[in-house]
């Protein structure tokens, strides 16, 4: 079926089936160690929100029904400033704050400190370092090569094509050449802006080999929508094979005179 044609009006019945939509709109498969934290927090917030929103609905629809002028001729005269009223209001305010806000703030803080901001240390653990350069409308990825230093002749540079080994922490340093972009990998639930003149960073790992989407999430001009890259998660052997070959090619063909190839920066740690 041609997705862009009118004939799918014919499938309206299928399309208007809400149960379908809920399963369709589930987020893409989580392929990282920490992504589930975000899914968990989202669901956690949802349950609490649904609870409070149901309360609102019960009040809204219930009162509208019971106290319509037809059923309730005379309104109850109160300013709502009696002690019980004030207590109920205060309790609702406090309940929302204590049950939703403080909990999700606490959970989120924990996740940040214990996971997302726990930067892997290349000195003590196995980490793949990657530099990312965004520009209108392309992603470039730079691997340090055998010498472990960036912006040297043995660097592997790919465009719109990120390949990483499975179960390895990958630490990205990102910047942009022209305008602000945002490095979004839906399957690991993370995004970070790439900003001209600054270096931002993010780390994640992937636990499921496969091919996934990388998107630019920040408006960056007319072809923002085309600024997509491919993420390939390899097994460790496959990655070693690929990167070894790519390094070989880089050594042989990288042209030190090529201005486009000369970017990259030293890492402080």
């Amino acid at each position: 079926m041609n997705v862009f044609s009118f004939d799918h009006f014919g499938h309206l019945f299928y399309r208007l089936n809400a149960a379908n939509w809920f399963s369709l709109s589930a987020p893409p498969k989580d392929i990282s160690t920490n992504g589930h934290l975000i899914d968990y927090l989202f669901n956690y917030t949802s349950y609490l929100n649904i609870f409070y929103f149901l309360l609102v609905c019960i009040g809204l629809f219930g009162f509208s029904y019971i106290y319509s002028a037809k059923r309730n001729k005379k309104a109850y005269y109160t300013y709502g400033n009696q002690k019980t009223h004030l207590i109920i209001t205060a309790v609702i305010g406090a309940a929302v704050f204590l049950s939703i806000d403080l909990n999700i703030t606490r959970l989120s803080n924990n996740d940040l400190l214990n996971s997302f901001w726990k930067w892997p240390d290349p000195k003590t653990e196995k980490v793949l370092k990657v530099e990312v350069m965004a520009q209108q409308w392309m992603w470039s990825f730079r691997y340090a090569g055998p010498d472990g230093e960036f912006n040297t002749k043995d660097d592997v540079v790919t465009n719109n094509d990120l390949r990483v080994p499975v179960n390895t922490k990958i630490l990205f340093h990102l910047t942009s050449k022209d305008v602000i972009h945002s490095f979004f990998v839906p399957n690991v639930r993370l995004k970070v802006d790439t900003i001209p003149g600054r270096i931002t960073r993010v780390w994640w790992d992937a636990n499921t080999p496969g091919v996934y989407d990388i998107a630019c999430a920040e408006m960056c001009g007319t072809h923002h929508y085309l600024m997509k890259a491919q993420l390939t998660v390899y097994s460790e052997e496959e990655f070693a094979r690929w990167v070894g070959a790519a390094e070989q090619v880089a050594m042989n063909t990288n042209d030190p005179e090529d201005k486009n190839l000369q970017w990259g920066w030293k890492w402080e740690n």
């Binding site: 609102v56 009040g59 809204l60 009162f63 509208s64 106290y67 319509s68 002028a69 309730n72 001729k73 005379k74 309104a75 109850y76 109160t78 709502g80 009223h85 109920i88 209001t89 609702i92 305010g93």
Partner: peptide, 13 residues
């Protein structure tokens, strides 16, 4: 929000 719901509570809407 609670006050809004309190307003329609026992009203004659």
């Amino acid at each position: 929000f609670a006050n809004w719901l309190g307003t329609i509570w026992k009203g004659s809407i």
